[in-house]
Design a protein around this nucleic acid. Structure first.
Lengths: 338, 338
DNA sequence: GACGTCCAGGACAGATCCTGACCTATATGA
DNA sequence: TCATATAGGTCAGGATCTGTCCTGGACGTC
């Protein structure tokens, strides 16, 4: 009896199960008359959620795709699955929707019951990274905290570790989260230094909101993403890579994706790749994954890295020969600001 | 005025933004009095959604984590981000929540507006696969269709391509979706053959529900996952791999994850890996990604694959030498049933 | 072709609920 | 101390909701 909004939500929840519901069954579950069910269905339709009905003896109601997203009513496991998916998406950002990903993650983490958060955490640490890290990886939970602070225009305090290992404590007004070169950066106004700064998120430790709101501040130039990339290019000792791929240019471009540099055809079966990167491991990984013959011309560091990798793999395939182990990890020395 | 449930949903949507909302601002947005806002907040609390309020001059309301998941109200971009995340999760299943992932995906795809679905599709094809496929990859949208049919107990018609290339049309009663050995399988009762069958999802083409419901049918033995793995072991010519890793056993186990076989220590710095796999590329990929010295002892196919890979990488690092291209793709010949 | 089953929706009466307009109490930061 | 925020009681008038009728249309089955 009564409590209409709760019943509407329950009805939405039932209808989101991908199956057909006869009105009588819905009425039974929600303990109301079928007439009320029909009225509720009408209400949902008025709200813009298209409920489709098939008439006839085996008919029923089902929620279909409309023009607006209905509220998603998830059970525990589904919520965990989405959280895990968003966390890995935060670690391997997809071009164009990185920011929406962290927004969704922040939204979800805000309301995720603690028992589910624990499950997400254990699943997350149990999941193995699929690609070379290329430096420390970001903590998705920290990322959610930063996204919340950005949305809330709330001052943020955190410990920041610079490239040379020194640590410092910061109080900033967060402005935007940006992905550049496969890394997360926080664009923020540093209150102590009275200037704009860019922080690598994987070097931020223990961020917590202070509760102090700050007035929106305009970034000079406006575009945060452009600000980050321009700062990176002016500061970072990125490598310029040139390679020849024995693969049609179109196919190589498709398999490399958009963020891997320029591909121009040499002839029908080969092409030239030019790109810049600050993580040799990542570039080498992508080239090997292409599963085609290729030759690297520059930079010498990448040549060295690939030579070491090839030698290691060759050693692995010839167990008869035993050799002293050679360290072959290339280090990453790029930093955004001090 | 009026339409309380819609206002409650709108209020929930606002509160899910990770920020604090003063009651007056909420009242303004929703065009009601602050008194009504306070009442609505109370209603939400009665429904079990914990709205926290900070009193005082800079107070406000915010939705915090409770014991149950509130309905997620997403904007377009967030919905797309979640869909993309779930699709990649379907391609790289995480142990333990694979089924919840596809359930959530099916739920989302069911109500995703078509314009957003298009965006998800283009983003999805633009996204490059991060790991070696090891055979054809599943279409997440097909997976969602299968999951919906499983939940709806609806008969399903599809074209199935067997290992030897022959195609057949099937009419089945879907029972469960299961991940085994990094692949999706559909456990279903084949109506034409009057027996239970296991189908590799990546070989299923154009699945579509028929609208015919079927009575729930009990799988002999009960456990669908066990049924799949036992069938696979009895049928599939998997490789048995043995390798020595120059890495502490604990670290290797952590970095390999749970599904990669048994790791036992040899001494403090080395360990032995035993596993079985039907995709050489995947195992080789994981071993190389460990970023440590290792030697493979078995199977010979893996040795050959690694030798070819090492040679290719070495060639790439020595652009002076030019050699005729050697094909080095290992084929995957495992099948679940005919 | 008749029948049962399902969705669609109008009319109506009675109970319920909701909103806005008061009011006071309390907590917090400037 | 003051301003501002949440918290919540009360009350009256009006809107809304529910259940119980009803008719009609669509669809599959017997």
């Amino acid at each position: 009896m009564s409590d209409t909004p709760a019943r509407l939500l329950a009805l939405l929840s039932l209808l989101q199960t991908p199956r057909e519901w006869p009105g009588s069954e819905l009425a039974e579950r929600l303990e109301v008359t079928t007439r009320t069910i029909r009225r509720d269905i009408g209400r949902l339709r008025d709200l813009g959620y298209p409920v489709e009905a098939t008439m006839g003896a085996v008919g029923g109601y089902r929620l279909v795709a409309g023009t607006a997203m209905p509220p998603l009513l998830l059970d525990d496991e589904e919520a965990v699955a989405i959280a895990v998916g968003l966390r890995t998406a935060a670690r391997h950002p997809v071009a164009g929707i990185e920011e929406a990903s962290v927004r969704a993650l922040a939204k979800l983490e805000q309301v995720l019951p603690s028992r589910l958060r624990r499950r997400v955490g254990t699943l997350n640490t149990a999941t193995v990274p699929l690609v070379p890290a290329g430096g420390p990886s970001v903590d998705p939970q920290d990322l959610a905290v930063l996204a919340a602070a950005v949305a809330n225009r709330e001052r943020l305090r955190f410990a920041y570790q610079t490239a040379d290992g020194a640590g410092s404590r910061r109080l900033v007004e967060p402005h935007r989260l940006v992905v550049a070169e496969r890394r997360w950066y926080l664009v923020a106004y540093d209150d102590d230094r009275d200037d704009w700064r860019i922080f690598r998120v994987d070097r931020i430790r223990q961020p917590h909101p202070t509760g102090m709101r700050n007035a929106p501040r305009e970034l000079p130039g406006g575009d945060a993403a452009a600000y980050v990339t321009s700062t990176l290019y002016s500061l970072a000792p990125t490598y310029s890579a040139v390679a020849t791929l024995h693969m049609p240019a179109a196919e190589a471009a498709a398999r490399l994706g958009d963020a891997s540099g320029d591909v121009e055809p040499i002839d029908e079966r080969t092409c030239r790749l030019r790109g810049h990167t600050d993580t040799l491991e990542w570039l080498a990984f992508r080239l090997v994954m292409l599963d085609c013959e290729f030759e690297v011309h520059e930079p010498p560091e990448l040549l060295g890295y690939l030579a070491a990798l090839g030698a290691r793999v060759t050693r692995a395939a010839s167990p008869a020969a035993r050799a002293p182990r050679a360290g072959d990890a290339a280090d990453d020395t790029v930093d955004a600001n001090n």
